[in-house]
Design a protein around this nucleic acid. Structure first.
Lengths: 347, 347
DNA sequence: GGTGTTTTGAGGTACGCAACTCATTTTGGG
DNA sequence: CCCAAAATGAGTTGCGTACCTCAAAACACC
């Protein structure tokens, strides 16, 4: 009736006895210190395996003495996303403090690869871990790899640099996000056929390109009655997005769906409203902000694909901590999920 | 450019000096031990506040010596939900072990209030914390309160007993879940009008009742063209659900939507399939299991409202641990969100 | 067999706190 | 003002690990 998970109360001393060696030798093996014969290493590791011994994380933290320092390299400027991340880290203050962790925010121009790379290089040696909202560029990649080589744990946040040797990526699967957007547009359009517009920041941005890819995948395979128009590149700016979309709407009468991949939502909504077709066109976008919340409530937007910034902030901290401690990462826990938000399940 | 959060390196000794008292007195205040004048208590607490001192959690854990024991009281029988929770707890084995935590599964008939209450009473004194999938019944409520009074931390899991003095509820907002289901059925039905069927386990179950309430709310206010039929109570059993629904389908020709509130999904799907109307009826249900996954892929189900069992398991453990340690709970982190899952964003 | 090197053992200290004892000081009531 | 009770100080021990030193033992090589 009662089944117990876990709880070995073994200590290093027990492992030493089991392996027939001294505490010092176990310590040497555990921390990859030199001066132990391969055969002895094996015996010790076997003893650890056999008892599925786990070092007591509290004792280890206490013994190590110095606190751990993490840096979050984030976009400068009045970026609402950065503010949210920072706010959620602020909510963790007591949690961090109780674990003697320090988190520092480093604002930089993450869209300028040389500036970003320089900011990263400047961190070398000072931190146990770095989380970075990274542009995917060779210079940035090199800077990340340098950090990793210097022993710093690195996680990419929101936007990945898959070709680097970063330890982990904390963010959503953007292809899946695009697929979800496609499915929503297709389903909500219903029986009607017609054209579907896409407004993105730029197809050069990895996350935007991946979302568009996923979106098109679903549209092509499941909604053949819908015709996807060429992507409008609004550079995430309101004005430009508005102009491009307004022109498109005036020329194409049979637009039934609209996918806004990035920001510039204000402009997109304005163009749609001015055309007087905001109730007929199914409009799906990203992220729950004050603006998208209002648009959803007004019925202008039909759904938003959202990632939880609080979860991203906490996951980044947890992953960095686990990496620094040499603990396994709970992959399932740290995976950032995609939320579909409609008017009636607004958080 | 760099802003630091957290990181006080103060110790109890510092607080003692600040407050002008000895370590022993600080210790007495911190652990609510008797024998300290109210005025002195105030001075110590002020010193703690002033420096926003946080005890080093690692040192505290190490010093306390004994491991913490938690119990999970879950439905007996081949319940897939329980199996998932247990599986996710199993994945945390290393994490738990490194913190010297033990988690024990206690299977019981959670639908029989007297059996459940007895199971809870039997745990008294043996555990630091208990997570329980609880029926909302006076006897169960009393058993929970007894545990709380005995100093055990109690969280309700999935199904709440709000009138008890449990410390926390880990689970979704079921009214919101019902609302989301209603919005999905309404939107996916589209322009058509017709009738909507509801199959539930029982309206006596709090979570089912709440879901139905939320569902009806949305249907009434936003989709006046849809007519909700009386709830079919299938007791979460496949056979009974199938029979009830099959009879309804044969009598009502204009059913365009179907909301399956609880389990019995196999039976519901069978009835729908046998009627030959599985492609015309919008079918929304709950939870992502092997079965619902298949139904979604086949296009029989259109959407599933899902709660993440892994998140629930981990949140329950984290909350119990935080409560036991006297740490604050990260409410935002432990809140269980509602996921909308369609074919194209199946996890 | 002697030499130098590598490997291992034994032990200590420190980390910050919990939990305890015992002596001493302060306080309030009569 | 005295005395018992209450409040406080001073101190100890131990938790399990990291990190360090020094000496002893085992080994490899010629």
């Amino acid at each position: 009736m009662a089944e117990t998970l876990t709880a070995t109360a073994l200590t290093l001393k027990d492992i030493a006895r089991e392996a027939g060696v001294s505490l010092a030798t176990v310590d040497r093996v555990l921390h990859n210190r030199p001066g132990v014969r391969p055969d002895t290493v094996r015996r010790v590791k076997e003893a650890i395996e056999r008892n599925s011994f786990q070092p007591h994380v509290a004792a280890a933290e206490l013994a190590r003495g110095r606190a751990r320092r993490f840096a979050f390299v984030m976009p400068s400027g009045p970026n609402p996303f950065m503010q949210q991340i920072e706010a959620y880290l602020g909510e963790m203050a007591a949690w961090l403090s109780a674990r003697r962790l320090s988190v520092e925010m480093v604002a930089t121009d993450v869209f300028d690869h040389s500036v970003l790379a320089a900011s990263l290089e400047a961190l070398s040696g000072d931190y146990d871990g770095v989380a970075v909202v990274a542009l995917d560029h060779p210079g940035v990649r090199a800077a990340i790899n340098d950090l990793v080589d210097a022993g710093t744990r690195v996680v990419t946040l929101v936007s990945d640099v898959p070709s680097s040797r970063r330890h982990h990526y904390v963010g959503i699967d953007n292809i899946a996000a695009g697929r979800a957007a496609g499915a929503l547009v297709g389903r909500l359009v219903g029986q009607r056929s017609g054209k579907v517009a896409i407004v993105a920041g730029s197809q050069g941005l990895r996350d935007h390109a991946e979302r568009i890819f996923g979106f098109n995948q679903v549209m092509a395979s499941e909604f053949p009655g819908l015709d996807v128009l060429p992507v409008l590149e609004g550079r995430d700016e309101d004005d430009r997005s508005e102009q491009l979309l307004a022109r498109l709407l005036s020329r194409q009468a049979d637009i039934v769906g609209l996918y806004n991949v990035g920001a510039g939502t204000q402009g997109v909504a304005k163009a749609l409203g001015d055309s007087g077709r905001d109730k007929q066109v199914v409009f799906v976008g990203h992220d729950v902000t004050a603006l998208t919340r209002r648009l959803l409530l007004q019925g202008v937007m039909d759904a938003a694909i959202s990632q939880n910034p609080g979860h991203e902030a906490r996951a980044a901290v947890r992953v960095l901590l686990a990496l620094a401690r040499g603990e396994p990462i709970l992959r399932e826990q740290e995976k950032i999920r995609i939320d579909i938000v409609m008017r009636d399940n607004l958080p």
